[in-house]
Each structure stands twice: as C-alpha cells, then as structure tokens.
Design a protein around this nucleic acid. Structure first.
Ligand SMILES: [Zn+2]
Ligand SMILES: [Zn+2]
Ligand SMILES: [Zn+2]
Ligand SMILES: [Zn+2]
Lengths: 137, 137
DNA sequence: CCTATATAGTAATATTATAACATGATGAGC
DNA sequence: GCTCATCATGTTATAATATTACTATATAGG
C-alpha cells in the first residue's frame, strides 16, 4: 500500500475505508460510537478502531470533526485544500449540517491574528441555528 | 434574591458565585472537573453542582464554553453584549486563551447565512495556533 | 396557606476518548 | 530469504466528560 503524499488521494486501509464509508453513507454527522455500532457487522469491536481511523481521515482532510457536537462528517467539499478552515452551519432543529468555506471571514480572522502576532494553524467555525427549511416551517 | 433581567448584572447563587470565582481566579480555562476539585473545600461533591452553575453562567454571558477544549473561561469582555459571538485564540503551546470580538468576520458569516436562509443563533469561532510569545520563542 | 418555580444534594449511569500492551502485516536494506 | 523498522490492528481496561433520576429545600406570588 503506497504512502500518502500531499495532494494525492491517499490509499486507505480497510478500517479507514469502512469508517469513511459509514460517514459518506450517512446523511448527517455521526459520533464515534455511532460509527462503531454501524461497523460491528464488519468486525469492529472497540472504540479505538474507530478513533484511529478517524484520526487518519481527519489528517487526510477527508473527514471533519464538529467540535460542538463531538461528531464527525465526511468532507463534502472536494477540491478545496483548506480543510483546516472549513465552516459548518448546524441546524438545531433537524440536524442538517452544511459545510462551506468562509473565505472572507477567514481573511478577517487572519488580519486579527496578524495584528496580534498569533500564528493560526487551524480554525473552528460552527454556526448554530435554524436551516432555511426549519425557519420557513 | 431578585430575578435576572437582560442587561442587569444577575444576582448569583452561592454555587454560581463559587464557580465564577474559580474561573476568574484562574489564568486560563478550566474543565468542569477541575472546577469541582477546586471547590471541594467549599463543599462541592458532585459534577452536577458544577455543570448546573456553568449552565447558568453561560446563559448570563459571564462564562464561555470552549468547544474545542471541553473547558470554560470567565468572560474577559465586559460591556460586550454579543456573548453568543465571541471568538477565542488558543495557544497550543502554552494554553493562553485570548477572547476577542470578530465583528468583521461575523458580518461575513451573517452574509453567508442570509444568502443561505440560515438563521444564526450562536457562533463558535476558535483559532488554534501559537501565541505571539510562543511564536517568537 | 397553597402552589409554582428555582435551586440544591446525591447516586447512578451514559457518553466520549485514551492508555497500555500484544500481535500481525509490510517493505527497505542487506 | 532474513532483519529490522514502521505502521496498522486487536483487545482490555480505564480515564474524562456529561446527563438522568429522584429527593429535598427554599422562596415568591396568589
Ligand atoms: Zn471539507
Ligand atoms: Zn433544519
Ligand atoms: Zn465574552
Ligand atoms: Zn503560547
């Protein structure tokens, strides 16, 4: 199995592929333990199998962790290289999660960081509220 | 004890005051269980005593939860009314947490939300990286 | 007084995440 | 092919974070 290089599609191990499959097959975020339950049929027995795969998938930029939910989503944002700067809108009514790239907001945050002498490595931007559908309703 | 009204300084219960005191006396964020340990001498025995006080203090805008740390900080930002929109820069080297109000970035996020029909109730903005001191060093 | 509401105490439990250690696969260099 | 290093894996136990359920007490308003 070949090593991962930046800008390659990394080749995934069996466990990584299973976890990614569970996430891409879900219509919303999943917790690590929800993934574990989904994959018991595939031989998963312990949380660490999930967490280890998630760590790698997050490294690869293929999965994002939602800090305010302690949950994970497959990246729906292929082609974008700034996986450390994605933003998410989370509907508190229906659970819908929308990923977007807040370029302008990031520029503003970078300005602040520059003025402050803070060297940004990663941003967490999560909006909580109501999606269009739930607002209309 | 008088009820809390918006824009008042709410009167705090004993437990709330103790938890807030622990946070303002700390030079950094504290987890709920760290607060519990600090307050055992004051009679705290169970996590729920801390979590209940924290819930209220967060409601009052006097304490913020840092989602990416599962920890809490006293608001260092008095006079600001947008306690649902504060941002934090977290140094991964020394643990320094700096609160700021990212007005411009928030405007950009509001623009996105408006275009998307998403009704924002709260934002989580947390920057991870190195503070000025740790960068120089 | 009566009742609704808020606060509080306590025990048990649920949820999320990591540590520690053993095993097996893979590939590079010899 | 063998040796070694590295990475992935399996398994058990445990740590860290958070909530449920139930009880009790205070207190303000009618
Ligand atoms: Zn993404
Ligand atoms: Zn919705
Ligand atoms: Zn604040
Ligand atoms: Zn620092």
């Amino acid at each position: 199995m070949s090593a991962h290089h930046e800008n390659d599609q990394p080749s995934l191990t069996k466990n990584q592929a299973l976890v990614l499959g569970a996430l891409t097959g879900s219509n919303g975020p999943l917790t690590a333990y929800a993934i574990l339950d989904l994959l018991r049929a595939d031989g998963f027995r312990a949380p660490l199998q999930v967490y280890r795969a998630l760590d790698k998938l997050v490294d690869f930029g293929m999965v994002h962790r939602l800090e305010s939910l302690n949950a994970f989503v497959a990246c729906r944002h292929p082609g974008c290289t700034s996986h450390d700067s994605a933003a998410f809108a989370i509907c508190e009514q229906c659970g819908l999660v929308t990923e977007f790239t807040p370029d302008k907001a990031l520029d503003m945050l970078k300005d602040w960081a520059k003025g402050e002498g803070f060297q940004m490595a990663k941003t967490t931007i999560e909006l909580r509220g109501l999606c269009r559908t739930c607002t209309a309703h």
